[in-house]
Design a protein around this nucleic acid. Structure first.
Lengths: 329, 329
DNA sequence: CATCGGAGTTGGAACGTTCAAGGCGGCGAG
DNA sequence: CTCGCCGCCTTGAACGTTCCAACTCCGATG
């Protein structure tokens, strides 16, 4: 193994000064064509690679972005974030950034970790996922002027940070329209308790579409925590009514999976559609709403690079999900 | 925002020299008790955090480990690596290391990325997953004396690097024994084509247990690529025989899920057990073999820290998976 | 002809840390 | 009393990069 190749090695080899090599790398336009070529040749001949640590110490920029990886929770929904992470790593790589992971049990600990990471590694930016009402994390970061992007829109109108999100309402609206077109009128919605931005958004798509089509939604909405057992219980409750629904739109694949169990025992067939298009949905043939996670990740990186380069861009990106039809609807 | 707190700030504040502060951090035993306390107080009072970039430039160690994140493939099996990644991040955090992600399309590109990462970020170590026969990656790393650990044992006897793995044979053996105890004799195995270390290992557990119990395995083994459709097809083929199996052990949850479909249409009930205990298995009530992924990740980090600290330890760790019984067996 | 200006290049300094070498007391041995 | 040693601490240098100020050409301008 040869000794380390530094900028000085390249400079000697190309018969120029260190700074000229640095210029070739960081500001090629100010170097004369012929010199640049000579330096480039030396670089590839020696296999030189800029040392990020040294660069970072001087510039304060690390070309590193941090993403939180959630402690393994519900295995079904967890996969959504994982797929997002895959996309993020790929796009970041392409843009010359690396992704660093961290974990945190709660918001407080996450904020402590921000401090740690910023102090120790001079991170360029953060990507947050799963925003909620009154999120303390965005406030903390904004106050310190740390660049960040959230995957998930800010649910409090006042926050002005850049974000990327998927239009949940558009997704459930699309589902509801599809079910209406298929002849259903009594279409129920299984969702989470009001107050979560994501849940309310997904419910809204169903509600407005139903109302616009002239259908009454009274009694057709059930709320519960997320989970398979909960989904089954809630759909059973709906099916026990006088005029039971013939189709049900769910806020998650977990709920939909439970609903599917209940639907199996029902007198009449019940169409079921989930949300997130998790691998489970594909496996059991559940129709579901698919989020464009790779695209969302790519847009996050776009926003970040623009932010870090000081280029002002459109700060809000709302993507439309796609309905994936399988056996259940 | 206050200006940067460096080791010099702390030194001034505690009335000592830079080096003494550095010693408190890196070699506390050589500093007098009282001085150490004073420095510690200054550190927490000022909220000082060591700058990793500067430390790295001097020491060549970055406290960063790299892990490959696979391009999203089969959504079902992908979750295994994701769960491993979660565990790895948590344990690494606890040990003072951070996890950096990278992607690669194939082995060649992965090796190029090693070079990039080592040159640019001075990574301390790599964690590789999914080892296979004649893996070029381990050879490359070993040749350059880059510390690394694999999750997955080396399938070529000659490789002497540290590894952590889960004993697949023990898993399928446990399943087979359970099925035998439940009164089955014609127990089939659905696996992958011979030649993959992992697949052969899982098959071996079934075969030896069957043979030891005095049962003939002839014609009870089917091979195919991984997938739900494949699993269904292979079990159907088995069920069409004269004396069809009454139970089937699968090399993956994907295959098991397919088998489950075929089993539903069978004349007699067929017990099905999968492998990996993915979220899908939990969702549909499929019995499966659960890998202790968090433990595996923790042992990987243990091995790495020992390796980096120059402490020789046991280089081979084989963990035993657990059978999770649900409805299907 | 002197001066200016700009393009291209150069050498010194700095980023924050750790390493190597050395200073300074005090204590025990000669 | 002196010397050497040890424990504790300090100072200067170095890691590899980029910023800054300055320098050298060389042609254009007054």
């Amino acid at each position: 193994m040869a000794e380390k190749v530094t900028i000085a090695t390249v400079a000697r080899h190309a018969q120029v000064s260190r700074q000229t090599v640095s210029n070739v790398l960081n500001a090629p336009h100010i170097v004369r064509e012929e010199t640049r070529r000579r330096v480039q040749e030396a670089i590839s001949a020696l296999g030189y690679r800029a040392n990020q640590a040294a660069r970072q110490m001087r510039t304060g920029r690390s070309r590193l972005i941090a993403v939180r990886i959630e402690p393994t929770r519900d295995g079904i929904n967890g996969s959504v974030l994982d797929r997002f992470l895959h996309g993020l790593t790929e796009t970041a790589d392409a843009a010359g950034y690396r992704v660093m992971l961290y974990t945190a049990r709660d918001d407080d600990q996450e904020i402590t970790t921000y401090d740690d990471l910023l102090g120790a590694y001079d991170l360029d930016a953060f990507v947050l996922t799963g925003t909620k009402h009154g999120d303390p994390r965005t406030a903390w970061l904004a106050e310190r002027e740390v660049p960040f992007v959230t995957f998930g829109r800010p649910w409090d109108a006042l926050d002005g940070h850049p974000w990327v999100d998927v239009d949940g309402a558009a997704g459930t609206a699309q589902v509801t329209r599809h079910l209406l077109d298929a002849g259903h009128h009594r279409i129920a919605f299984l969702g989470w308790p009001a107050g979560s931005g994501v849940g309310d958004d997904r419910c809204a798509g169903w509600r407005t579409t139903m109302t616009a089509a002239g259908h009454d939604v009274a009694g057709l909405r059930r709320q519960s925590e997320d989970g398979i057992a909960e989904g089954e219980r809630e759909l059973r409750a709906l099916l026990a009514r006088d005029a039971p629904p013939t189709a049900v739109v769910c806020a998650s694949d977990s709920l939909a999976l439970g609903a599917l169990q209940a639907a199996r025992d029902a007198a009449a067939p019940v169409a079921v559609v989930g949300f997130d298009d998790t691998p489970v949905a594909a496996a059991v043939g559940l129709s579901s709403v698919s989020q464009p996670l790779a695209a969302a990740a790519a847009r996050c990186v776009d926003l970040l690079t623009d932010l870090l380069d000081g280029q002002p861009t459109d700060h809000r990106v709302l993507l439309t999900p796609a309905l994936v039809l399988r056996h259940t609807a």
